[in-house]
Design a protein around this nucleic acid. Structure first.
Lengths: 178, 178
DNA sequence: ATCTGCATGTAATGGGTTACATGATTTC
DNA sequence: GAAATCATGTAACCCATTACATGCAGAT
């Protein structure tokens, strides 16, 4: 049994948010908001769009004055599929392939200077990410209305920020250890 | 350029912790401690061990009364490679492929019942994982000596626990939202 | 001597990334 | 109308997972 494919559902979700989108548009989504927790590239997306169209999850919206850009929209079946997926309970937590944990794991000695270096680097990365997340929040959710209009998105942004703040606190607590 | 391979370094790290190990031993490691943040299976590991032996990162320790189990040990070059890797700063944070975030992202409406369901399921998963992590901590690090002997491992277990506790707190804070 | 279990090994399949390719549209 | 840009498409390669295969060891 091959790994459960997620990409088609992500694509369904993205298109349904916007009504109709081109492959390019979808590709772009992965560089911003969704990019925080899912990655994909156009060379995956275009073939997937074809497959999904063949499976009747998507339909192509003809555009008379531009036959280069292909606009996709959910079919009824596509919407049903997306809804079913959203209702399906998740069975396990993801295993994040985390180099920080991995390297730390192999450093046994409390006084190994590489441990300090690792912690320091990690702190820089977390700070940078946190700054980025805060920027997104300010940009996207500065008004009550914006929050209510995309509540799920708002929540997971909050969650990401809370996580990174917790990690930063934890990392800072390690410094005086040395 | 293909994705940066991590597995060989993980294998170097695992073997170096124990002095010498068989493929089976290494496979088992991925089901316990390291399994919290990295996965691999024997069908990846055995070919990798061969490659690493060919590359002179590992050497085979002959065992006269058992030519079925093959014991591997780091060479000097292998140890050097591992140390270099441990010193190399990480360049970015991992993007965890997180179904919870993904599904939440696509639920716009604050009052959508699927949001509550998702949160509830996630809470169960986090609780279960937290219980498991606490169990590991009690089992492995109940003494001061144990902590000092594997300080890196201790730290990342602490980190994982802190993370999950933070997430649980966050999830609980969502409940009264309705 | 056969059966069972186990460490190791291999094959088939599919996802994902990078790099390259195509063809149309815009720009100058 | 040539060149550059851009949306879409394709190929090559590698990694990972699942399932199956081999062959030795110990048990009966």
């Amino acid at each position: 049994m091959p790994a459960k494919r997620i990409l088609p559902y992500v694509i369904l979700g993205i298109i349904s948010e916007h009504g109709q989108l081109t492959g390019k548009d979808i590709t772009k989504e992965f560089t911003t908001d969704i990019g925080e927790f899912w990655k994909s590239s156009h060379s995956q997306i275009y073939p997937e769009l074809r497959r999904m169209t063949a499976d009747q999850w998507l339909k192509i919206i003809p555009d008379p004055d531009n036959d280069k850009e292909i606009h996709y929209q959910l079919t009824k079946a596509g919407r049903r599929t997306l809804n079913e997926w959203l209702e399906t309970p998740n069975e396990s937590l993801p295993v994040s392939k985390d180099l920080f944990s991995l390297k730390m794991f192999f450093i046994q000695d409390k006084d190994d200077p590489r441990m300090t270096a690792l912690i320091d680097t990690q702190m820089q990365l977390v700070k940078k990410n946190l700054a980025h997340l805060n920027e997104r929040q300010q940009l996207l959710f500065s008004s009550e209305a914006a929050i209510n209009q995309n509540y799920g998105h708002y929540l997971i942004l909050q969650r990401a920020i809370a996580r990174q703040e917790a990690q930063l606190t934890w990392l800072k607590g390690l410094i005086p250890v040395k």
